[in-house]
Write a protein that binds this DNA or RNA. Structure first.
Lengths: 349, 349
DNA sequence: TTGTAAGCGTTATCAG
DNA sequence: CTGATAACGCTTACAA
């Protein structure tokens, strides 16, 4: 079930053909050759100022715009694909803004594909991006298994945000230190005198190498700090569509933990919802911590303590690294941001 | 400051050239002509079952994928552009899901551009989409003035979601009835015995034709219902970056309204935040209503009464209409969904 | 029903 | 420094 081939659609109506402005039109208008125009377009060497000026004038005058399709056939398409696995996650919006920041002054245009948490869709989107001769790819929190990512990276320059592929690497990665972030949360809560801290996270599917996900790293940070402090590890798991129930159960349970550390803000907001609903007070009866520090954390009704990982910065760096790769770098580079804990009222801050 | 032309980047490294599988490769493998393969790809008339089978087999075997760039040069690129003006607005995620729903079984691939509320960026994104020979365009809550949209619609099939351009139309529109929604909120609140109802909305920039925005239509619904009921109209305006202060002022004011009807959920959540912060109780001291019924409304800490407009359905319809247009329809079609009020605790529901 | 061949708008190579 | 010209991979008359 692939989008590659055409359906039996009615034939598309012929357009009125308003005599398109091509590189040839510009060349004629400026009284130069097409290759001269092409060189000006690409800032290639060997064009005199006079020629450049004349060409630019014609381009302006005719409002000429190069065809990305035609460009893509020979050289670059100046298009970068960004694959978002979950458009509902508002944190990703910040990453996108960072990507735009870096790309704005360049000729590269980012275009997004959204895959809705479905692995097969994710893969077919990558194919769609390759089919469109994009010059590079940024994967945001991909769910594809590592070998598949490496496969993709063989075909086009790739940068991954929000995944910690071990060892490897034909591609670059950009992350915050999720292990450190996980530890920091536990240390902070323990400093408050709390001992019964539960980590609330996503049920991992029957997958082999999901060592790489950010939640898994946060979990490792949690476990390592708990162990170091001599506290009992307690992990609660739920699937995406059962978060609400799980949160409710967790909050309502007899031996309710003193604090719940959620793998992401979205889950923490659900925990707050459950507590509100059940009349369990935050932070007096239970403390809640999230991760990502998204835009909803600071609303007073949430006032959620969370780990900030500067999504905008992650996006900026990813775009920067991708351009470097497109320009020829081959050695992998792994960029890491140090997360910082933002304390708010959900932990009594 | 446009992304059209190339920068003085280092020359991109030549790739190892792993002998690309083209339509020609497939033709040779299957022992047929290229045009035969092309016909199979497009489900064109005049191909025998035998030939089709052989071609399909080769395609499968060689894992051939057509180049969208090459296709775009002659025929369609099978790519649809979706222009999101504000990726932070979670409601748009639902629209996107609807678009995906409709497009999944077709050969069209939606690709998103995000413009971050900046009008110039919005226009240059549209250009980028045109440059890439996309087959159609979906504009979500565009800020471009109407003449500009019409201009765009002349160049490629266009559908607009979340805007009410008067009269006109070389393009289709998909909306909920924002006037009706606005009225419904007022009628509901008045039915609760409330009379002092304030509408909290976006400051319109010095723009002529912003009669078209959804907030303006909601405002019209509000005004019309208030007038009909003989109540005093009260409208509070703020810019995007001053919502928090404005909300605070509104909630803290001496003659605080009995209810605040916000143009969108995001603003309503800010109002709830201000009230929470100031110790003003909801719904006892003040009632709050939003619009969009986004995923955060149902969290208990918000429990926000809101107008549902079925974003997913809007997205589905938009994609459907766009495909119809690409297939040749020229008469404009305007699709409208009837909104429904979802009552929650923020109004005592 | 199938095949041949002429573009589509660029870039890149190679002469002038 | 400038200009012909051959690709690039596909669609589409038109011929066979």
């Amino acid at each position: 079930m692939d989008n590659t081939f055409a359906p039996p659609l009615k034939k598309s109506r012929a357009k009125p053909a308003p005599a398109r402005v091509t590189i040839r039109t510009v060349a004629e208008d400026a009284g130069v050759s097409v290759s001269a125009v092409s060189k000006v377009l690409r800032n290639a060497y060997g064009v005199s100022d006079g020629l450049r000026a004349r060409v630019m004038a014609s381009i302006e005058k005719l409002d000429y715009r190069p065809s990305a399709s035609a460009r893509g056939m020979r050289g670059q398409s100046y298009t970068l694909g960004v694959l978002l696995t979950d458009i509902r996650n508002v944190f990703f919006a910040e990453i996108m803004e960072g990507i735009n920041d870096t790309l704005a002054p360049t000729p590269y245009q980012p275009l997004l594909g959204v895959s809705q948490l479905r692995r097969r869709v994710e893969r077919s989107l990558v194919d769609a991006i390759i089919d469109r001769q994009m010059d590079g790819l940024i994967l945001v929190a991909p769910r594809m298994p590592l070998p598949e990512i490496e496969d993709v990276a063989k075909r086009l320059p790739t940068v991954v945000i929000g995944s910690h592929p071990a060892g490897t690497s034909r591609f670059d990665t950009v992350n915050n230190d999720d292990i450190l972030g996980g530890e920091a949360v536990v240390d902070y809560l323990n400093g408050l005198g709390l001992r019964r801290i539960t980590f609330f996270t996503l049920t991992e599917p029957d997958d082999d190498d999901d060592e790489n996900t950010v939640m898994m790293h946060r979990e490792r940070g949690y476990v390592s700090a708990m162990t170091r402090l001599g506290l009992d590890v307690n992990i609660e798991r739920a699937a995406h569509d059962t978060v609400a129930e799980a949160a409710r159960r967790l909050v309502a349970s007899k031996d309710r933990p003193e604090a719940i550390f959620c793998w992401g803000d979205a889950w923490a907001l659900r925990v707050i919802s459950a507590a509100t609903d059940l009349g369990v007070r935050i932070p007096q009866d239970i403390r809640v911590v999230g991760y990502d520090n998204n835009q909803y954390c600071e609303l007073a009704q949430n006032s959620l303590t969370s780990v900030d990982q500067s999504g905008r910065e992650l996006g900026k760096q990813a775009a920067r690294l991708l351009i470097e790769r497109i320009e020829g770098r081959r050695e992998p580079y792994h960029f890491t941001v140090t997360p910082s804990l933002i304390v708010r009222n959900s932990t009594g801050g």
